[in-house]
């Protein structure tokens, strides 16, 4: 495995939840990254954000690592979950809650419910 893959491997295993994004959780620099970080921040999730704009090697390496061409990328317990579309769909369907609960990851359930209420057409 290339060393960038090793680096990524360590990063995704170093925290329960890892978000590879453009910018940081407090200063996202892309609409899609901002949406995913926004959801995780809103539900009070403790996660490690990796700013791919600050590390070109990771920015390209992560796409090969997950065989997924875009950023952001969400990982839970070392497993690739998805990008902005998938995380959004999972948030609205409640699958995100189940996934976190199944993995013993703490978050604010009421806040997650509020997101769904706000988006219920």
């Amino acid at each position: 495995m290339t060393d960038v893959n090793n680096r990524i491997d360590e990063i995704v295993k170093a925290a329960d939840v890892v978000l590879f994004m453009k910018g940081t959780k407090d200063m996202p620099q892309c609409g899609f990254s901002s949406r995913v970080a926004g959801v995780l921040n809103y539900i009070g999730l403790d996660y490690s954000d990796v700013n791919v704009l600050a590390d070109e090697e990771i920015r390209q390496g992560i796409k090969d690592y997950s065989d997924w061409p875009t950023i952001p990328q969400l990982y839970v317990k070392g497993e690739f979950v998805g990008g902005c579309d998938i995380v959004t769909e999972m948030t609205l369907s409640g699958e995100l809650d189940t996934m976190f609960e199944d993995n013993g990851v703490a978050f604010n359930k009421d806040a997650a419910d509020k997101i769904r209420e706000a988006n219920a057409q």
Partner: peptide, 22 residues
């Protein structure tokens, strides 16, 4: 699952998305 479905779609786009000049 969604990841597998969307991976297939990205593969169909044959690299139109992932290069920095995508």
């Amino acid at each position: 699952n969604r990841v597998q479905q969307q991976r297939a779609v990205y593969a169909a786009l044959k690299g139109k998305m992932d290069g920095s000049d995508g």
